[in-house]
Each structure stands twice: as structure tokens, then as C-alpha cells.
Amino acid sequence: MTPDQVAPRSLTGLLDTLDPENPATGAEHRHHDAHEGLTIQDMLDRVGARSFGAALLVPSLILVSPLSIIPLMPTIGGLVILTISIQAFFGRDHLWLPGFLATRRLSGAQLKRAVNYLRKPAAWLDRNSRHRLRFLSASPMDRIALLAVMVVAATWPFLEILPMFTSISAGGVALIAFALMVRDGFVLIAGYTVLGLSLAVVAALISGIF
């Protein structure tokens, strides 16, 4: 990752870094042309090596979009989110991904589809977020948020056949990641609510099986 990359400060800014039609995401030094697609490593490089909140947003937003129906996408996204959140939990300064995850690629058309789908909700969240209940997103409370993300993301590989479930729970992860990035405790509570409902569904499924 490029350590001097400045992380986006909003959801709209993050989507701009992934948009193949944004001039800023065209061919540039050390990166693939966004029109030809980006690997997961490319995407994370664009949001910065030090911002774990922004890094968590990348795979969670992809899973919120219609791309979640692509086979194995929930599993790959879940593993990426687990890897990022574990490193954030233990206080690493820079993010690292194993090669089999870092080299996974989305085409330019897939990226554009996801970005367009997420533009309106991202703009709404940007307009309505602000610094509120900041203690909920500060250390050590942020570790609770990361732990919740890890627990939920770990269920996705086993629920691959339920893409709608993955999209909804990924929305909760995205809310938590966004809240950590902008320090908004209200958004964090909303994310906890979605993840809590997701875990309730998982518990109901397990109890039904056994």
C-alpha cells in the first residue's frame, strides 16, 4: 500500500476513488487503470494504508451492492473484512492482505454498477452524519465495534446461498465502518442494530437446524 495516500473523508469521496469514470481514477503510476478493473489491493491502496474504517467500507459497500449475487463474493468479502478488522482490533499501523484475497479483481463495468447503485444512499449519509456521541467510536469502545464486525462477517461464508442476508448484514458493517471513519455514534448504534438483527437470524437458523 502507499503509506502517503490520504483516505477519503466521506462516502461520496470513497466512491469517487473507485469510479471508473472519475478522471482521478484513471491510469496512474503503480495502479491499474480503473476502466480495466481493480483488484482488492488496488481498491484498498486508493483509500489509504492507515484508515481501517475506510478500508472496511470498500468490501462492505461492494456486498451491499448488486455485486453480492456473484458466486463466492460473500465469502471473499467476508474474509477481507475479517482480515481488516482483526488487524484493526490489534492496532496494526498498516493493512496487509494475503495474496489470494489481494489479487481478486472486479471489472470496470462491475465497479461502475456498484458505484452508481450506492451514490444516493452515500450522499444521504454524508449529509446527515456529524460528530455525535464520539466516545462510542473512540478507543476502547471501537474494539467492541470491530469485534461485532468480525463475528458477523465470519458467518457469511456459511450463508452464501442467502445473498440478501449478506447484503443486509454488510449494510450494518458499512454503517459501523462509516461511523468509525467520521466519529458518529448515532450511525454506530444503527450499525449495531442491523448486526444484532443479523445475528438473531443466524441464531434462528442454527436453532432450526439443530
Rank of each mutant, 00 (worst) to 15 (best):
A200V: 08
D4Q: 14
P8L: 04
A123K: 10
H131K: 13
T166P: 00
D142V: 01
T12V: 04
T17Q: 08
G13F: 06
P71R: 05
A190C: 04
S139T: 10
L72R: 12
G48R: 11
R127T: 02
S60T: 02
I69D: 11
D42P: 02
R105V: 03
L67K: 01
Q5A: 13
A109P: 00
L82S: 15
G108C: 01
S10F: 08
S68L: 01
I176R: 03
L72A: 12
L106D: 06
S139A: 14
V194K: 01
L14F: 09
I40T: 05
F178T: 02
N128Y: 08
A203P: 02
G172L: 07
V187N: 03
L82T: 15
S198E: 10
G53E: 06
N22C: 00
V201I: 11
V149T: 11
L188M: 11
R134Y: 08
M164V: 13
G172I: 04
F100P: 00
A7H: 09
A34P: 00
A179V: 00
P121V: 04
R119G: 03
Q87G: 12
A7M: 06
T2P: 09
D93E: 14
R30Y: 13
P74E: 03
A34K: 04
I86E: 15
A148Y: 14
D93T: 07
R143N: 14
F52R: 06
P3Q: 14
V115E: 07
E28A: 08
K120F: 07
H31T: 03
V6G: 10
L125F: 10
R134A: 12
H131L: 09
L205R: 11
A34T: 07
L195Y: 11
V149E: 12
D184E: 08
S137E: 10
T39C: 06
A7P: 05
R127L: 02
L44D: 10
L195D: 12
Y192C: 07
L97I: 05
T166S: 06
A114S: 09
L106Q: 05
T75A: 06
F186E: 09
A138D: 15
A123D: 09
P71A: 07
G208H: 14
P20A: 00
G196P: 13
L118Q: 09
Y192T: 05
P66Y: 11
D33W: 08
V47K: 04
F135G: 04
D42S: 08
Q87T: 07
M73R: 01
H32T: 04
H131Y: 12
R130H: 08
Y192V: 05
M164Y: 08
G78W: 06
L175Y: 13
D16R: 09
D93W: 10
P59K: 02
S198P: 12
V182M: 06
I70G: 03
A170S: 12
A153P: 00
I176S: 06
P23C: 01
G77I: 01
I144C: 13
D4S: 14
L118A: 08
W96V: 11
L63N: 09
L82G: 15
